[in-house]
Measured scan of single mutants.
Amino acid sequence: RLTVMSLQESGLKVNQPASFAIRLNGAKGKIDAKVHSPSGAVEECHVSELEPDKYAVRFIPHENGVHTIDVKFNGSHVVGSPFKVRVGEP
């Protein structure tokens, strides 16, 4: 089962990169992540390998409000996905 680490749920800033990590815990497959902005825009997140069992997911929010992040592994949502994060002040 995958572990999502260091996902900041609030206090993110517009046009500043945000990232979190995913540990695969021995699982093999493909991570896919997309961020949905409050206006409905959908953007791919950048996924990069940090070490053999750990990946970083990076995105840049372009507007204030609550964004939804879909994180999928081999086509299925990971536990807790979709995640909600707040950009800007509430």
Rank of each mutant, 00 (worst) to 15 (best):
N74R: 06
V4N: 10
V14H: 03
G26E: 11
I22C: 13
N15Y: 09
G11V: 04
G80A: 11
G29A: 03
V57P: 01
L50R: 12
E89G: 06
G40S: 10
I22G: 00
F83L: 15
I60R: 05
P90A: 04
K30P: 03
V78G: 08
P17H: 06
E44Q: 15
V4K: 08
F20K: 00
I69F: 08
R86K: 13
A33Q: 01
L12V: 03
I69T: 04
R23F: 07
S37I: 13
F83A: 08
V71K: 00
T3Q: 11
V35N: 08
V57A: 07
P90Y: 03
S76T: 13
H67C: 14
S81H: 06
K28C: 08
G75N: 13
I22K: 00
G26S: 06
S39P: 10
R23L: 11
D53K: 08
P38W: 01
S48N: 13
K54E: 14
G80F: 02
K13C: 13
P82K: 03
L50C: 13
P17G: 09
P52K: 09
G88S: 05
K84S: 11
I60F: 10
S37T: 05
E43V: 05
H36N: 15
V4L: 15
D53R: 05
V71H: 00
P17F: 04
K72D: 12
V57F: 04
R1K: 13
G40W: 04
E9L: 04
S6K: 15
I22D: 00
R86I: 14
F59G: 00
R1W: 13
G65Q: 02
G29R: 01
S6G: 15
S6Q: 07
V42F: 15
S81P: 01
E63Y: 09
G40A: 14
K84V: 07
S81V: 02
P90D: 10
A18V: 15
G88N: 07
N25Q: 04
P38D: 00
R1Y: 15
G88A: 09
P17W: 06
T3E: 15
G26W: 02
L24R: 06
I31M: 04
A33D: 00
A56F: 14
V79K: 07
Q16R: 11
N25R: 11
P82N: 05
G75Y: 07
K13A: 04
P61N: 01
V35C: 07
K72A: 11
P52M: 11
E51Y: 06
N74A: 10
G80I: 01
H46V: 09
V85M: 12
A21E: 09
T3V: 15
G29Q: 04
A56P: 08
I69W: 09
P61T: 01
S48T: 08
T3Y: 11
F73E: 02
L24F: 07
G75Q: 09
G29K: 02
F73N: 12
F59C: 04
I31K: 01
V87T: 15
F83N: 03
G88H: 05
A27T: 03
L2F: 06
A27N: 04
S39M: 14
S19Q: 09
R23C: 13
H67W: 11
K54D: 05
A33P: 07
R1P: 01
Q8P: 12
L24D: 00
P38F: 01
S48I: 12
V78D: 03
F20V: 07
K54S: 04
Q8R: 07
T68Q: 12
L50M: 08
N64G: 13
T68R: 11
P38K: 02
S37E: 02
K84M: 04
Y55P: 12
N74F: 09
I60W: 11
I69G: 00
G88D: 10
S19F: 04
P82L: 01
P61F: 01
R86P: 06
P61A: 02
A27G: 10
N25F: 08
L50K: 14
E49N: 07
V66M: 07
R23Q: 06
V66F: 11
F73T: 06
G11N: 11
M5G: 13
H62P: 14
Q16L: 04
L7A: 02
G75F: 10
K30T: 10
V79R: 08
F20I: 03
N25A: 07
G75I: 06
A27P: 04
H46D: 03
